[in-house]
């Protein structure tokens, strides 16, 4: 079930037909759940995080607003982090599309060719719309960076949290960060990563809609249902 470069553009006669004759189950349930838990916790963490940064509403709106907002931030910080750990676990044991087995291999000529096909597509320098069943290799790179940011966000978040008790075991685990950079930079970074994630989300949603439209691969629905049309015929 190696992925193929599908070139509907080279077969004009099939241009407007539904290409799929059958569907493939690509995104398994746990992965979809992880994706949407991730989605909601990031939205909530961003809203609450921004509020912590700039409490634009005051006690007039709610009697204990900062306390509660921080509570929600911390709570979803935990949910987000556990979710992240699940995803990492999935990376080890998940199906082909979810796990390390789907990593594009830079030493594999075909994977390299795919990579450049997607780059050409994104930069309007190629005529063809490439198609793959799993993550495309460019998106894969973006996800890798994103997960790096997630891990840093988790670490920085817990480190900031631990400061309220430098004697705690949480601080013992995270406090080393403050030996590298000051807590203000940790906070600065934690704040800035929110925007980096925001930048990713814009990119991400745009890209999935773009592919949905260009390669008619049912991208968007796949992350809800798990199924993608089999375009390999």
């Amino acid at each position: 079930m190696a992925s193929t470069v599908d070139t509907p553009a080279s077969r004009p006669e099939k241009q407007y037909e539904c290409a799929a004759r059958r569907f493939l189950y690509i995104w398994e349930g746990p992965l979809r759940i992880i994706h949407w838990v991730n989605f909601f916790s990031i939205i909530i963490l961003s809203v609450t995080g921004y509020f912590i940064h700039d409490p634009f509403m005051s006690s007039a709106q709610h009697p204990y607003i900062m306390g509660n907002v921080r509570y929600v931030h911390y709570l979803f910080g935990i949910i987000f982090s556990v979710n992240l750990l699940f995803r990492i676990y999935g990376f080890l044991v998940g199906n082909y599309f979810a796990s390390w087995r789907g990593i594009p291999n830079p030493f594999n000529a075909k994977d390299r060719k795919n990579f450049w096909a997607f780059i050409r597509f994104y930069t309007f320098t190629g005529k063809e719309t490439p198609h793959l069943l799993g993550h495309n290799p460019v998106a894969f790179c973006a996800y890798t960076l994103l997960f790096a940011l997630f891990i840093l966000q988790m670490l920085s978040g817990f480190a900031l949290w631990a400061q309220n008790d430098p004697g705690s075991s949480l601080y013992a685990v995270t406090g080393w960060i403050f030996g590298l950079v000051s807590n203000q930079w940790v906070r600065w970074f934690h704040f800035l990563v929110m925007f980096l994630i925001g930048g990713f989300v814009i990119n991400h949603i745009y890209s999935v809609v773009l592919f949905d439209f260009k390669s008619k691969s049912g991208e968007v629905s796949s992350i809800f249902s798990g199924w993608k049309p089999d375009r390999r015929d």
Partner: peptide, 22 residues
């Protein structure tokens, strides 16, 4: 940080809006 962050989000939005338009 806010200015830098806004610039990052603004720049991605601008890039992808352009990409979409093209």
């Amino acid at each position: 940080a806010l200015n830098i962050g806004t610039a990052i989000v603004g720049a991605s939005a601008a890039i992808f809006a352009t990409h979409g338009a093209v």
